[in-house]
């Protein structure tokens, strides 16, 4: 590989990591409260609001059932409003965040619903408020599951971020399409795939280790 190729590859990897990191961060920022709300607002639950729960559930499902590439195109006006443009790495962060938020919300909802109902009862019994129950019981107890969910979300975002290359976003996907495919450079295509595999492996391992470290339900030697 030429130094030029390595330079391109490094730049694209950086762009991908930036897009994924920012959209995962924003997705968690919006997805965490949304997920907590979805997990606690059913009938008879802590913040019982069955109607809001149902409406949000429908919105989340609608967003998740839209194929990502269509979502990217469909929200171009919104992307332009937020990022000022619809082309490039910065612009790509908008659809990535929009797609990851409901995904992360569902993962967090699932993790929180796994928490033993008895703990909520115990916390209510010693006088905890619903907010205290969320912050001191539900989130800490669900944390290993949340970390695994976020790992899954980040890995998915890496895949999504490769797709935004098709609409002028930067990153590894863009590099693979333009150099590997359109300029017939199979070695570049191969390099992009290898970098993506390494990236996903590393992130998944990191997430697994972190989740295992946080999980005190299992006895550690």
């Amino acid at each position: 590989m030429s130094p030029e190729m390595i330079r391109l590859l490094a730049g694209a990897t950086g762009e991908t990591l930036l897009m994924v990191a920012i959209s995962a961060g924003l997705g968690t920022l919006f997805g965490l409260p949304l997920g907590v709300f979805l997990a606690t607002s059913g009938k008879g639950e802590l913040f019982a609001a069955p109607w809001a729960n149902r409406v949000l559930g429908v919105v989340v499902n609608a967003t998740r059932s839209t194929p990502f590439i269509i979502l990217v195109v469909a929200i171009i006006p919104f992307t332009r409003l937020i990022a000022g443009t619809s082309i490039g790495t910065n612009a790509a962060i908008v659809p990535l965040t929009v797609a990851s938020t409901p995904f992360i919300a569902r993962l967090i909802e699932g993790a929180i619903r796994e928490v033993d109902q008895g703990l909520i009862e115990a916390a209510r019994a010693f006088g905890a408020s619903p907010l205290q129950i969320v912050l001191k019981v539900l989130i800490p107890e669900a944390l290993p599951g949340i970390v695994l969910g976020l790992t899954l979300a980040v890995v998915s975002l890496i895949g999504f971020s490769a797709m935004v290359g098709a609409v002028g976003g930067g990153g590894l996907g863009d590099l693979g399409i333009r150099y590997g495919y359109q300029r017939f450079m199979p070695e570049m295509m191969l390099a992009v795939v290898v970098v993506l595999i390494v990236l996903v492996q590393a992130l998944q391992s990191l997430g697994d280790i972190l989740a295992r470290h946080l999980n005190k339900r299992i006895r550690h030697a």
Binding site: D116, L119, E121, A122, R124, A125, P140, K216
Partner: peptide, 29 residues
């Protein structure tokens, strides 16, 4: 409820907190 303690058949302790941290929880609250 702070003046009514309760114990449970399945203990209902937080797995993410140590014994001391579990006991501390009602006091933090």
């Amino acid at each position: 409820r702070r003046s009514i303690g309760m114990i449970f058949q399945h203990f209902n302790l937080l797995s993410s907190r140590t014994a001391a941290e579990n006991v501390a929880l009602p006091l933090e609250v």
